[in-house]
Design a protein around this nucleic acid. Structure first.
Length: 416
DNA sequence: TCTGGGGTCCTAGGACCC
DNA sequence: TCTGGGGTCCTAGGACCC
């Protein structure tokens, strides 16, 4: 049996851990740039606040109901996520960390509701984060079980013990809530009269293959209890890494864009080195503001293939800036810029080029010294001059909570 | 005024090979 | 008038996920 453990309203719950005044009060967390709602406490959900809604549109509701609003604080959420996952690890032998707030747990020898409840309580006690756990034969069914655990049980745990229970649950489970059915496919399915998960499970497989591709067929099998998505027990190297940000204020000057792009490129290089990967492609893109319907839109992208895969900051920044020069047009005003590095290979398996004249050994040493200094003294203490000093393209983050667990200056003080 | 960021996988179609 | 059959690889775009 496979369990899906999912943190309830994760980011909102994280904000509560060190700020108990927020208990039972509505809490929302905003996306980067304080743009959209990306997490809501149950109280906020009850007020009708929707996922992904732009914050400025619900300003009235926020003020009227005294909703507690937070900018996104990934240092905090990432660290609490690590703690939650480590707590799971104390109880199961095999698990797959699926996202920042979810893990698939191997419950092959663990089918006991009381132990599930205990696990849930342990996470709550050790980390302060509430979780729900659903258990079933496959990942897809575990997702359904998790839904039920969250919405219809007090204990927050639910097990699909037999096929009859599965069938009854699928019969009332909306097809659009299935894992792998998105907006487009949900619409398509409803048009032909498929509204519930059970109806989907009984649909002709050829029709599903034709209309939803092989993924739809796998989904159908998983609903029947046949595993198509086994637990991934080894962490996979990322195939692409992207760093991008919207600007708080739109930008036209190429100098500021160069600062933003080189910073994103440098971040990509740092992420690569952390993964012990090198990339074989470097791409850069710009976006105008898509919400300005009157303005002419421009979404350029330029990618380079490298002769020798690299994770050197200087080299990746150079390619990104070269791309920027090729796509930048002064007649547009830009809202977003980003860098994508792709086709990664393990650092230890880089194919050298006969015509390479870069002293890669030296660069490797420089990067590792810079990484070490920044780890010890703080992010960006040492950076490339082209990144600039001002971060004039800065994000909007007006409601940021402290990094309680990852920065000494932000630690809570207890007076006794 | 104000609208996020980071991923994966699949498919069709084009280019190329023999 | 009439022009085969069987492959691989790559890419862009679209779907999905959190």
């Amino acid at each position: 049996m496979i369990g899906l453990a999912d943190c309830n309203n994760f980011y909102a719950s994280c904000e509560r851990v060190f700020n108990p005044k927020l208990d039972r009060k509505p809490v929302v967390v905003l996306s980067n740039n304080d743009g959209c709602i990306i997490a809501r406490s149950n109280e906020a959900k009850k007020l009708g606040i929707k996922m992904g809604e732009p914050a400025f549109k619900i300003k009235g509701i926020i003020e009227k109901h005294n909703i507690n609003v937070f900018s996104t604080n990934f240092a905090l959420y990432g660290d609490l996520s690590r703690r939650v996952m480590n707590t799971f690890r104390t109880e199961v032998n095999k698990m797959e960390v699926y996202s920042i707030d979810e893990a698939f747990l191997d419950f092959t020898d663990f089918l006991d509701k009381d132990r599930l409840v205990q696990l849930k309580m342990k996470v709550q006690k050790w980390t302060g984060i509430p979780v729900s756990i659903g258990v079933a034969k496959t990942k897809t069914l575990a997702k359904v079980a998790n839904h039920i655990a969250k919405k219809h049980t007090k204990a927050g745990v639910f097990i699909f013990e037999d096929e009859d229970l599965v069938k009854r649950a699928l019969n009332v489970f909306p097809v659009e809530d299935l894992w792998g059915i998105g907006r487009k496919n949900a619409k398509r399915l409803k048009e032909v009269g498929i509204h519930t998960a059970l109806q989907f499970r009984e649909t002709n497989t050829h029709w599903i293959k034709r209309n939803l591709s092989i993924n739809g067929v796998k989904l159908q099998k998983e609903l029947k209890g046949e595993i198509c998505y086994p637990l991934k027990l080894t962490t996979q190297r990322k195939k692409n890494i992207c760093t991008s940000r919207s600007f708080a204020n739109e930008i036209n000057e190429v100098k500021k864009l160069r600062e933003a792009v080189s910073s994103h490129a440098n971040t990509c290089a740092i992420k690569l080195r952390k993964e012990k990967s090198c990339c074989s492609t470097v791409g850069v893109f710009l976006n105008t503001n898509p919400f300005k319907s009157k303005a002419e839109q421009y979404y350029p992208y330029k990618m380079f293939r490298l002769d020798v895969p690299t994770n050197d900051s200087i080299e990746i920044v150079k390619f990104a800036l070269k791309g920027l020069d090729q796509i930048y047009l002064p007649s547009y005003i830009y809202k977003k810029a980003g860098v994508i590095v792709g086709r990664t290979v393990p650092e230890s398996q880089v194919q050298l080029s006969l015509f390479d004249n870069l002293d890669r050994d030296k660069r490797r040493k420089v990067n590792s010294v810079v990484d070490r200094i920044n780890k010890r003294m703080g992010k960006d203490k040492v950076k490339l001059a082209v990144q600039g000093t001002g971060r004039k393209w800065k994000l909007k983050q007006e409601k940021l909570s402290p990094c309680y667990t990852t920065r000494f200056a932000d630690m809570l003080e207890v007076k006794v």
